[in-house]
């Protein structure tokens, strides 16, 4: 199974993205998207932003669960209070696990945000953040 994670800023700008695979069922953590699907990932994910905009005001939860589908792919979303969106493209439904993943990711994001040299909506280039996200992916997905 493969995943594509994107963090979108409050002005709908991309802040961070990562593609990875599962470690379960003998996976090695790398994504198995075919080349053209991999290229499409950012587009698929960004196209669900419109849906989020509608759903986020009707739903008080931050985890919006699966909000969009694209052929066999599902898109889960999590919107923080500061209107930062976490989007995950995945293949099978697993709301609870993904919720935990998002909650921990939120924690990591907040820690990054607390650094005085980082400002809101700036792209996250920190290697530490990158590593920790990969650890989270390994733990949950």
């Amino acid at each position: 199974m493969s995943f594509y994670l994107a963090i979108i800023g409050s002005k709908d700008n991309a802040i961070y993205s990562l593609d990875f695979g599962t470690y379960r069922q003998g996976g090695d953590g790398t994504s198995k998207f075919s080349a053209d699907v991999r290229q499409l990932c950012p587009f698929i994910v960004h196209s669900s932003l419109d849906i989020i905009e509608e759903v986020q005001w009707t739903n008080s939860a931050m985890h919006l669960k699966v909000i969009d589908k694209f052929y066999n792919y599902l898109i889960s979303a999590y919107v923080t209070s500061g209107n930062i969106k976490f989007l995950l493209l995945h293949e099978t439904r697993a709301d609870e696990v993904i919720r935990q993943f998002f909650v921990d990711l939120y924690d990591l994001y907040v820690k990054t945000l607390m650094s005085p040299f980082y400002s809101v909506d700036q792209a996250i280039t920190s290697k530490v953040f990158d590593q920790r996200v990969k650890m989270l992916a390994k733990k949950y997905l």
């Binding site: 607390m114 650094s115 005085p116 040299f117 920190s126 290697k127």
Partner: peptide
């Protein structure tokens, strides 16, 4: 220096 990461 809690939370701090130096600019890269």
């Amino acid at each position: 220096s809690d939370f701090v990461e130096l600019p890269d």
